[in-house]
């Protein structure tokens, strides 16, 4: 949190120029051509994929299914599958075989 220190700032301020004030996210999941799929047998839950994921869309669980992906934002870049030390992740084409 911002520390509370006395500052002599004017009570009224004017904003000059455009100001970004709404935190938004682009639906980058729509770019995806390949989707990472995890082999729960091989995954050791080390968290390497989550550390390198550019969109931070991987959640590592301690119990149950090892990984959760946020499909709204996963761009399908494949860094997680490339970096997995156990090769537990594979990239499969989005949309299946047909």
């Amino acid at each position: 949190m911002q520390q509370n220190t006395p500052m002599n700032t004017p009570s009224k301020r004017r904003v000059l120029g455009p100001c970004s004030h709404v935190l938004v996210a682009a639906n980058t999941g729509s770019w995806r051509l390949e989707r990472p799929e995890v082999d729960a047998e091989l995954c050791v839950r080390c968290g390497t994929c989550a550390r390198y994921c550019p969109t931070a869309c991987i959640t590592v669980h301690k119990e149950g299914d090892p990984l959760d992906f946020d499909w709204n934002y996963c761009k399908g870049c494949g860094i997680c599958a490339n970096e997995c030390p156990k090769q537990a992740l594979t990239m499969v084409p989005e949309g299946g075989d047909d």
Partner: peptide
């Protein structure tokens, strides 16, 4: 923000 228009990878 989770979704930013930076390139894939």
């Amino acid at each position: 923000s989770p979704g930013i228009n930076t390139c894939q990878g």
